[in-house]
Amino acid sequence: MLDATRHPPRLPAAPGVGYKSQHFSALRADPGPVKWLEVHAENYMGDGGRPHAQLRALRDDFAISVHGVGLSIGGEGALDADHLARLKTLVDWLQPASFSEHLAWSTHGAEFLDDLLPLPYTNATLTRVAEHIDQVQNTLGRQMLLENPSSYLAFAESTWSETDFLSELVRRTGCGLLLDVNNVFISATNLGYTATGYLDAYPTDAVGEIHVGGHDEDQDDDGALLLIDSHGRAVADPVWTLLDYALHLTGPTPLLVEWDNDVPDWPSLRDEAGRAEQALAALADR
């Protein structure tokens, strides 16, 4: 178990955005309310070139959060030692304010499936994920944040609720949590529970960062609404409303807008960050 007090989250309780390289110049010229940037770890695991040069320039003006999408913390097998070593190399030279990963799996054997795949919430999964989180935190020498998934289905064998599962992981490993409010909204809709009920049961004391992002609407086999975690459009109004509810529980928190597909021009993303700024300001005014 890591002593989390030695590594408090250092991201500012302000708006951040998921960084896209095409925004490099426009973002630096007019950051608007954006105080920090989140980068996907794997995109910066090359040996050099423009990606590294951009990060070196950006870290002078912005706090940086490294967000992994490939560690497969929920994988049935051992963590990929090579990948963990690459992550350590990146974190060691970049010294980001935060590192986060997902409660999901993506690697099976020698294959990387490039998606965040779901886990059954069982005692066996709990033990395995806790061991993997310990390994990551010990290797990196810092606390990590763990993000709740967007779900389209559940496992019959699950014996834990997702919120209890996350609470127990925090208790066992000392990790923090990345609360993705869009994912809560998606999972609640898709699996038929209330999003506010989920947040009431969620260990909000452990939250070091919040995500909001866009989703798409589809239908399942029965014609029921099925929300898809696409990150390809503006944040939906009900997700902003749910964010207000979440912020009342967490207090001021670093707040990230994610837009990873059909990426808009910089002013559009900056405007979304402006909405995140309003949500944080409304909390301060209360």
């Binding site: 499936l113 490039d114 998606d115 795949l117 779901p118 059954p120 389209y152 289905l153 559940a154 496992f155 019959a156 064998e157 898709n190 699996l191 038929g192 589809d218 239908q219 399942d220 086999d221 029965d222 099925l226 898809i228």
Partner: peptide, 28 residues
């Protein structure tokens, strides 16, 4: 072992993961 409730079909729900993986790899 995948479910969204007793007796409900989940083919389209599993298809989200199938589609995500294929689209991610094809886009890359």
């Amino acid at each position: 072992g995948l479910t969204i409730g007793q007796g409900k079909p989940i083919t389209k729900r599993f298809a989200v993961y199938r589609n995500n993986v294929t689209v991610a790899l094809v886009d890359a």
